Simulated scan of single mutants.
Amino acid sequence: MTTLLPSEPGIRVSLAELIEMRHRVREVQLFSTPSQRSPLIGLHHSKLRGRGVDFDQVRVYQAGDDVRSIDWRVTARTQEPHTKLFHEERERPIFIMVEQSCRLFFGSGLMFKSVLAAQAASLIGWAALGHNDRVGGLVFGDNEHYEIKPRRSKQSLLQLLNRLVRVNQSLHTETEPDRDAFNIALRRAREVLRPGSLVIVICDERALTEGAEQQLSLLSRHCDLLLLPVSDPLDHALPAAGLLRFAERGAQLELDTLNYELRQTYRAQAEARVARWELLAQKLRVLLMPLSTQSEMVEQLREYLNPERPGKSR
């Protein structure tokens, strides 16, 4: 049995920290309420394409009704056009895929990327449970994948958070990275998720390979996606700090960060990654909300989801 380490704020998470995140749900309008409709859920429900809805009733066809919803059996029987009415599911499976790999065990901002990913997963999980949705997920790292089946229970969410904490606290810099971990996790999600599920993908910004793009495209055919790539300021720009030495499992690298061309090339690669995520989100017509360790997580989500917020820049 794994012994949980003492929490190190910003470096490692504790279960108590993730449980406390439930008190911050009210600060962000993640899901719709009778009095307020969230941009997040509004976007997804607007393109359900017949998934995630329950049959309600049949009534006489009215001008403006979708002809694809005509009930031909009732129409033939009554000799008058009738259309089917549907209402949105009161609960839907929400599957939170969260990465906890060694490439996330780094941060130059307020916290490590692994901590930011865990916090975001926890907040979304508590919000979904409060919205009466079934919550489950998949925690994946370099050499491990832990799956929690979606259920409408606090125990299911706590099981997910507990597993998330255990993987987070086992992270260290000597782990051999698995470059295919994200693809494997996405393939598993496609196997287990039912059509109409909402899949929250929280991963490193660098995880988007050609294979991962293909898996996300396939997953989006049957499920709604919300993409939250996580990054650190140093992922996007190198400081002009002179000669920097990096070491990883015996390999060493020296970079002269005073070299302007090197810094420009590094920045261009980062901009290409950002553009790749944006292009994919546009192509799949899904919501993209990149998160950075530079700012507080709840504040970033609030900026994305509150269109009336002053000074919104994203």
Score class of each variant (00 low, 15 high):
A275T: 07
A63F: 14
H87L: 10
K84S: 09
E210K: 15
A16Y: 06
I148D: 00
E248G: 11
L15R: 00
L288E: 04
Q36L: 12
L301F: 10
L216R: 06
M297F: 06
V274P: 01
W126H: 09
E8I: 15
F86N: 05
L104M: 14
I96K: 04
T175L: 15
L116V: 03
G125L: 01
P307H: 09
R22F: 01
V199A: 02
E248R: 15
L123M: 01
L15C: 02
I202M: 08
G250S: 14
D204I: 06
S114D: 03
R73H: 08
A272R: 09
V230K: 04
L171C: 06
L208T: 08
Y266N: 11
R163D: 12
V135W: 00
D56W: 13
E99F: 05
L225I: 04
L164H: 01
P239D: 07
A16E: 12
L288T: 05
V28I: 14
P290E: 06
E89D: 11
N162R: 11
L5H: 15
V274C: 05
K84M: 14
P307W: 07
Q214L: 13
A237T: 13
S313C: 08
I94H: 03
N132C: 09
P239E: 06
R190L: 04
R263F: 13
L253R: 12
E308W: 14
R188G: 00
Y304R: 03
P6H: 06
V199T: 05
E144Y: 03
D142I: 09
F140R: 07
D204K: 10
